Amino acid sequence: MRRAALLAPVLALAAACQQPAVAAEKVVRAPVAGVKAQETGKLSTAIFAGGCFWGVEGVFSHVKGVKSAVSGYHGGKAASARYDVVSSGMTQHAEAVKVVYDPSVIRYDQLLRILFSVVTDPTQRNRQGPDVGAHYRSAIVPLSAEQRKVAQAYLKQLGSAKLWDKPIVTKIESPRKFYPAEAYHQDFMAKNPKHGYIVRWDAPKVRALSKMYPGVYKASFTRD
């Protein structure tokens, strides 16, 4: 692939940081989950969609107990699981992140609390921050009956909490195959801390995590 084609998606996203902040995600302190996850085993996996995967991955990479956070595509077919196609908005994919975590250190319900506190605004339909399109939708993808039970209860709890002025539109989606994104998207925040988009839109989310939930925050991007 030509260099220009590789750089085009990054340059397009960089331009987004010049847009006004009127649609930025609202940082809130989401409530402690009324239904706590009861997961067994050494590791569990979760999939979250909450806007540009750079920020979603970046935040969860700073959470204690998270072993890996991989940016990718979820909801569509293998043939369209490419950034140049997904970014057209014409696929069923969402930019998503697959999180592998130790449930004895961080529970699924705690990950949901982080998601809605500092990562995604659940009242924005098919957009987050400066990014617009169905591929930027806010969605939870439970991978077990336990996760689905906890996610359903937490969305209901958030609706009753009235933390946002608008209704919650985040959906629970059925699991489909997760396709890792291109290599240059992985650990993008860690590799490009001075990138305009990261500075404007995503670094503030990590700072909010460190201040709001210092007990689960880890400063290093190094995997546990």
Results as ranks from 00 to 15, higher is better:
151 A>L: 11
151 A>T: 11
151 A>M: 09
151 A>R: 05
151 A>K: 05
152 Q>F: 06
152 Q>T: 15
152 Q>N: 14
152 Q>G: 15
152 Q>M: 12
153 A>V: 01
153 A>T: 02
153 A>Q: 02
153 A>K: 00
153 A>F: 08
154 Y>S: 04
154 Y>K: 07
154 Y>V: 01
154 Y>N: 09
154 Y>A: 07
155 L>W: 01
155 L>N: 03
155 L>A: 04
155 L>T: 05
155 L>D: 06
156 K>H: 08
156 K>Q: 11
156 K>I: 03
157 Q>Y: 06
157 Q>F: 07
157 Q>R: 03
157 Q>N: 03
157 Q>W: 08
157 Q>P: 02
157 Q>K: 06
157 Q>M: 00
158 L>T: 00
158 L>Q: 00
158 L>S: 00
159 G>H: 01
159 G>W: 01
159 G>N: 04
160 S>L: 07
160 S>I: 05
160 S>C: 02
160 S>Q: 08
161 A>V: 02
161 A>D: 03
161 A>Y: 02
161 A>I: 03
162 K>N: 11
162 K>F: 06
162 K>R: 14
162 K>S: 06
162 K>T: 05
163 L>Y: 04
163 L>R: 00
164 W>L: 04
165 D>M: 01
165 D>E: 12
165 D>H: 02
165 D>V: 04
165 D>P: 00
166 K>I: 10
166 K>T: 13
166 K>C: 09
167 P>G: 11
167 P>C: 06
167 P>H: 08
167 P>N: 10
167 P>K: 03
167 P>R: 06
167 P>E: 08
167 P>D: 09
168 I>Q: 05
168 I>F: 07
168 I>S: 09
168 I>A: 04
168 I>G: 05
169 V>M: 14
169 V>F: 15
169 V>K: 08
169 V>S: 13
170 T>K: 11
170 T>E: 15
170 T>H: 09
170 T>Y: 13
171 K>W: 07
171 K>G: 08
171 K>D: 12
171 K>Q: 14
172 I>V: 14
172 I>E: 10
172 I>A: 11
172 I>C: 11
172 I>P: 06
172 I>T: 12
172 I>N: 14
172 I>K: 09
173 E>W: 13
173 E>L: 14
173 E>K: 09
174 S>I: 12
174 S>A: 13
174 S>P: 06
174 S>F: 06
174 S>W: 04
175 P>D: 09
175 P>N: 12
175 P>F: 09
175 P>V: 04
176 R>D: 13
176 R>W: 14
176 R>H: 11
176 R>F: 14
176 R>S: 14
177 K>G: 07
177 K>L: 10
178 F>H: 14
178 F>Y: 14
178 F>N: 13
178 F>C: 14
178 F>L: 10
179 Y>P: 13
179 Y>E: 08
179 Y>H: 11
179 Y>F: 13
179 Y>G: 10
179 Y>I: 10
179 Y>M: 09
180 P>E: 03
180 P>V: 07
180 P>G: 04
181 A>T: 02
181 A>Y: 00
181 A>V: 04
181 A>N: 02
181 A>L: 05
182 E>V: 11
182 E>P: 10
182 E>N: 07
182 E>H: 12
182 E>G: 10
183 A>I: 07
